[in-house]
Design a protein around this nucleic acid. Structure first.
Lengths: 195, 195
DNA sequence: TTTTCAAATGAACGGCTGTTCAGTTACTCT
DNA sequence: AGAGTAACTGAACAGCCGTTCATTTGAAAA
């Protein structure tokens, strides 16, 4: 049976992406087969190749799409002064990591499974994201609101710290998302040496 | 040809571990085959099963051995007052991450590839390590040397921050190991709200 | 020198891998 | 109603997977 009733490209496409994201986040890119992804969508493996030329491209597009979304959203944040901006960023980043948990996990877990050129493309976006935070930190340091030696390293360190939330936070756990945001904002504020 | 001249269990064993560590760190557990590991050692795939009952056990023993070494070393650190201890810990952790880069990478990248019970075993050690730092932080907070709301979360956040070094630090890069230690110690000190 | 046996081989097992493609289906457009 | 076509199937491809095991090897023990 081919072309089941109601199946269209614009439905199957997103479902493949969703299934792939879910499975790869859970088991890792290398451990997930095209057939597994297809089965989750309710389709044969061959059908995936209507949407992606190969498995590697699938991973690349998954990660690129995520990074682009993330960048677009972070750039849309309302900015004021560095201290407020830093808080905005922290709360945004933690919320994002929850809302797109699978994509975030993949984005920094599967970098090594990208080919060299695909890695470069994704990495460039990751650096842009990093630079966004770096900009806030540098501005705050210049204005004397923060006490920061090296804005670049500090930005990396803070993002790593915030990403760490993913390894232990569970919905319905001891802490709510807001509580986590509060705790980490206090930490980041102190790390930045904010007045 | 079996049993090549000079090949013994106590030589092959460690070589398998080393090859496995190197390959898994580079490509991921799922992406590395027993045959690849065997080839790197210069042996047939079947020979690996003289040392590990199966692939999963190999991963488990790799991670367990690493965590046990790490724990033993961290517990052997000379302790004094919280502020000095925190600095000692930070420099130790960063140095460890470099000296055992492959093992460290695997230890927090391949957790999801462990079976449930193997995960529990490894995770218990990871928590012990975390608690070591938590102890320093709690003591410092109690003595008024640190300004810390939640020692547990702060410990996790700091370890995540320090682990982040792995994602960008390269031997022979712009910064030396000592410079990285200095930079991160300054960050951690500030994060802990040290006087 | 002969015996013993841990260590390693190499072939085999069933099953899964990514990918291709001719053929089939069901929708859309004329 | 009929043609056109995007979407999907299902089988096939060569090759690799983890694991097992009878067999061979070579060094140490007797």
């Amino acid at each position: 049976m081919a072309r089941t009733t109601g199946s269209h490209s614009d439905i199957t496409g997103p479902r493949i992406v969703a299934a792939a994201q879910h499975l790869i986040a859970k088991h890792g890119f290398a451990a997930v087969s095209m057939r597994q992804i297809a089965r989750e969508v309710g389709v044969q493996a061959g059908a995936l190749y209507n949407y992606f030329p190969d498995k590697q491209s699938m991973l690349k597009e998954l990660m690129l799409a995520h990074m682009q979304d993330l960048l677009a959203d972070v750039r849309a944040l309302p900015l004021q002064d560095p201290l407020t901006d830093l808080e905005t960023f922290v709360r945004f980043h933690i919320a994002q990591n929850r809302g797109r948990a699978d994509a975030v996990f993949i984005a920094y877990m599967e970098l090594r499974n990208l080919t060299e050129e695909n890695f470069a493309e994704v990495e460039a976006l990751r650096r842009d994201y990093e630079r966004f935070l770096e900009g806030i930190l540098a501005k705050g340091a210049a204005q004397g609101q923060f006490k920061i030696d090296n804005p670049r390293i500090t930005a990396r360190a803070l993002i790593a710290m915030l990403n760490g939330v993913n390894t232990w936070f569970r919905e319905g756990g001891a802490l709510s998302l807001t509580e986590v945001q509060d705790l980490y904002w206090a930490l980041v504020r102190q790390t930045a040496g904010a007045k």
